[in-house]
Write a protein that binds this DNA or RNA. Sequence first.
RNA 1: GGUGCCAUCGCCAAGUGGUAAGGCCGUAGCCUGCAAAGCUACUAUCCCCAGUUCAAAUCUGGGUGGCACCUCCA
Length: 466
Amino acid sequence: MRIYDSVQKIKREFIPQEEGKATLYVCGPTVYDNAHLGHAKSALVFDLLTRILRANGLNVTYARNITDIDDKIIKKAREQKKDIKEITDFFTEAFHKEMSSLGVSRPTIEPKATESLEAMFTLIQKLIDNGHAYKTQDGDVYFDTASDSEYLKLSARVQEDEDRQERVESSSLKKNPADFAMWKSVKDGSLTFTSPFGEGRPGWHLECSAMIEKHLACENNEFSVDIHGGGADLLFPHHENEAAQTRCGSSHTLANYWMHNGFVNINGEKMSKSLGNSFFLKDALKQYDGEVLRFYLLSTHYRSNFNFNTEDLTTAKKRLDKIYRLKKRLFGLAENSDTTSFQTELLTALSDDMNVSTALALIEDMLSTANETLDTAGKHKLLKRETISNLTYIENILGFGVQNPFEYFQFGVDEATKEKLATLIQQRDEAKKEKNFEASDKLRDTILACGVSLMDTPQGTFWEKI
RNA sequence: GGUGCCAUCGCCAAGUGGUAAGGCCGUAGCCUGCAAAGCUACUAUCCCCAGUUCAAAUCUGGGUGGCACCUCCA
């Protein structure tokens, strides 16, 4: 397995600290709003990574946190006059449901900030004790960036000129403009926690560091985790700060490998609140099959920026359709787990920094070979066995083709329409039997007008929603 | 302004020193009552210029054009 390390900026052979095991930590959502396509991309990328690592025989512990303490959550709760927990529970549940629609497996553990406060206190205290953090008159606790000679090395950033920073941080009691809060003193009562440092809330960067130490780090290892992942925007300041806290407050270096996924843009524009063009997953899932979205979002390299548009989504669906059409041809045949050279090649491609493009090329080659052989020698038993095994392998490692192939093609069609279609198809079949092609073609046109395409096969007439 | 990334067929997109994968679209054909689906065939020398090399889309320098981060963000 080779992984592009976005800190060293090279592809590196993945060697876990403990043989046969891998630990992965990914920054998860702050649960104050609906998940958008960017959250989906990140979750999908690391879901795929986990599957590939496991296919390579590793026992993976994958942690993705839920940030349920945050200023934006409080703001939302105030606006909607709701309890904080009501907000966070609602969006956490929605997140899980939407991820499930995309075929994203649940991480091994999903730590919540609210459940990891003790670990945060411990880390802050350690940093205060060893001189890497300080408390201000206001009761805030800041990380002292000047005390860490390694600071900014992770994101390869140079110290910024003071003019620039002072504009942002004019009214602070910080020693240094770059210092960041680990504990924010809050006295107005909303979502505060009692800590050894007073009433307040933890800083966002701290949450991740503390949760990693609590759930994943192993005392004797050099690194807290093997791989740390997240969106490309998190490298600075979030990951830089996390790394500083862990470096100075524990016996570990935070991560051995860093992976950052590219951004999702919408029709060439950055998706953002201010532009008002966020594409929420819940809206996308109303229009499109979650698996189509999965296929589309995973079909280009995870590090590239992704430009979401409906034309390319349609193309992605056509590619996924081909997998399902072959599944239809082999429907009902017994499963088996033959290992084939195709599977080895597929895993090799995916193990090269998740080269999905090459993997898809291999899949499409396998599909056309299988179709060709079925066309010319329909009773080829070994080929059928191997093809079924290959399709199952694709399902497991990529999560493509997991549905019933007939139901897949009926996405978004209600029961009443299905019954109507069944009747029309039956009428058409009868007309065909009587060689009344004028009538049968007319019925087909009627069906086509409903956005449904017909296919006559030796097994009968099948339909697909276009 | 600082830092970094990118530029491959009409569109999407791999390949990062050894002579351009794949998909969509398109054209022709096979199959079909006709279709649909499936199959077969056909379509680029890699933004520009210079250099290194036996050999470059792949390395170096320059140019042009995109984009991202530097502030909460996946």
